[in-house]
Amino acid sequence: MNIGVLAVQGAFAEHVSMLEKMNVASFEIRKKSDLDKHFDGLILPGGESTVMGKLLIDLDMLSLIRDYINNGMPVFGTCAGMILLAKKIEDTKASHIATMDITVMRNAYGRQLGSFNAVSEFLNERINMPFIRAPYIKTVGSEVKVLTAIDGKIVAAQQNNQLAVAFHPELTEETAVHEHFLNIIKKKINLTNAN
C-alpha cells in the first residue's frame, strides 16, 4: 500500500510521520508529475485551504485529483483538506476539489483564540481532537454518513471513499482515524482483486 500526501502547503509532514509510525509507505505530492506515481489513497492535510486551492490550480493538479476521487480513489481530508473536498463553502462562491456532498463553514470557531482541544468519540473510540482555527460541516447530503458531532456540529463524516474531519488526528498519538482510512483503502483493494 502506498499513500500520496498532498504537500503543496501545510502540515503534510505530520501525516507522513503518522503513516511511518503505522508502517505504511507514503510520498509527497508537490507537482503534477508526482501524480504519475502509483498510490492507493490520498491525504489532503491541514494548512490554509485558500493556498492549497490556488496551488492545485496553478500547478495544474485540480482536475486530475478530482477525477481520481470521482473514480473511487480513497481520500482523507483534515481541516483545510476537508474544505478542499467540500462541494459548498459557506459565505463564498468558491469551491476547490468539490467532490464531497457537504457544506462547510470556514474558521467556524473564530480566530486562534477560539482554537481548542476536545475529547470525543470516533467510531466507538474516544480520542483527542485538536481544532485549530477549524471549520465544521453545516449540512450533509443524503449519501454522507456523519461519524462525529460535537455540540451539534458535525466534525467528521464519510461519503463512500471520502473521509473528512475538521480536527487534526495527525497531531496526536492516536491512530484511530488513520486506521479507519486505511480500512477504506483495504476494502477497495480487496474489492478490486475480487473482480
Partner: peptide, 8 residues
C-alpha cells in the same frame, strides 16, 4: 500547532 499549519 497553528504554526505547523503555516508550514510550507
Amino acid at each position: 500547532e497553528l504554526a505547523q499549519m503555516l508550514k510550507g
